Simulated assay, not measured.
Amino acid sequence: MPGQAQEDKMVPIAAPAQPGAIELGTGPLPGAKATETWHRQYRSQFARNVTVATLTPFLPDPATASGAAVIVAPGGGFRTLSMENEGWDVAKALAAKGVAAFVIKYRLRQTPADMAGFEKSMQEMFSGTARTPAPAPAAIGNDIAPQIADASAAFRLIRSRAAEWHVDPDRIGMIGFSAGAMLTMATTLSTKDAKPAFIGNIYGPLGTMSVPADAPPMFAAIAADDPLFGNRPFTLIDDWRAAKRPVEFHLYERGGHGFGMYQKATTSTGWFDAFVRWIDMHGMLKKKP
């Protein structure tokens, strides 16, 4: 379809305004030469070659704020970030439910500065990802040390300004999409100070791992027709259950990879409502006395 082909095409755009974005203080990406650029694809705005990490707050109306908060980590293979579909749109929807949301624009691996070279590198990465075994969440920590440092800094920043933002320091969760889900899992496992109160793993790899005794409640969602991770074992769910930690798992028949906040004619579109009902079940939509 011509319309679908047009959506698939990467179109360079100027960096959008990002009012309220706060630098996380983790410094510029070591050795970076390419500078941050943006493009549009699949009805979303993407950032790449991010060298300085930021956090953008989306705060709810104080009258409806519950005190809970969520760090939102977009995906993109650690080479790009789907800032709109898996970031801002998610944060706005959470804020509308009374949850303070913070979109993290974490530092990325360097990619070719020219669009043609970047497109080729992404095609090679995703075709290779579909063929090779997905890494266990615990095994990727060393490969994404800068990104984990950014996520840890995000937790510290929110807690340091909790009173200003009307956030309960003990009710800060994290939700990630694809690579952002990997970052969410690695942050949960690899850091001692982040300690998310709950986590969301949205179409990230669900391979086995050693679950800590104090692992937070986890919500996981993926489509069976996901070309990257849908045909692999979902042993992470079994591991969470074996550790007797709370877990909710949604396996959608269709949805592909990267459905995020897109409205599609598949049941995967319902993941956000299910996630909100889940955090409500865990008391995150209710104000503490």
Rank of each mutant, 00 (worst) to 15 (best):
P233K: 03
A34P: 02
T187R: 02
L59N: 01
T111I: 02
P169E: 09
Y203M: 07
L29A: 13
D273G: 15
T64D: 14
R109I: 03
A96K: 07
A100R: 08
A145K: 13
A139G: 05
E84Y: 04
L59V: 11
I222G: 00
P112S: 11
Q45V: 12
S160F: 05
R131M: 11
T37I: 03
A21L: 03
M209T: 15
D61V: 07
V50C: 06
P60Y: 11
A100Y: 14
R277P: 02
T267M: 07
E7T: 07
H250F: 12
W271A: 04
L251Y: 09
P196S: 07
P28N: 10
Q147P: 07
I104D: 04
A223C: 09
I71Q: 08
E124C: 00
L236I: 10
I172P: 00
A34K: 05
H282L: 12
K195L: 03
V167K: 00
D8P: 00
R159Q: 01
G141R: 05
D214P: 02
R161Y: 09
W88P: 00
D61E: 15
A73F: 10
I71E: 12
T187G: 11
R156N: 04
G176M: 09
D273L: 01
E23A: 13
Q45S: 12
I144D: 13
A242G: 11
I237E: 11
V11N: 09
T235S: 14
P2R: 11
P135Y: 00
V52N: 12
M185R: 00
P112K: 01
G283T: 07
R109V: 05
K264F: 06
V211C: 06
A47K: 03
F229P: 08
L55I: 15
V167F: 00
A130I: 02
I22E: 12
M209R: 07
A194F: 07
A134I: 02
F126D: 10
G3S: 10
I158S: 01
K264E: 15
P28E: 15
R156S: 12
F272I: 06
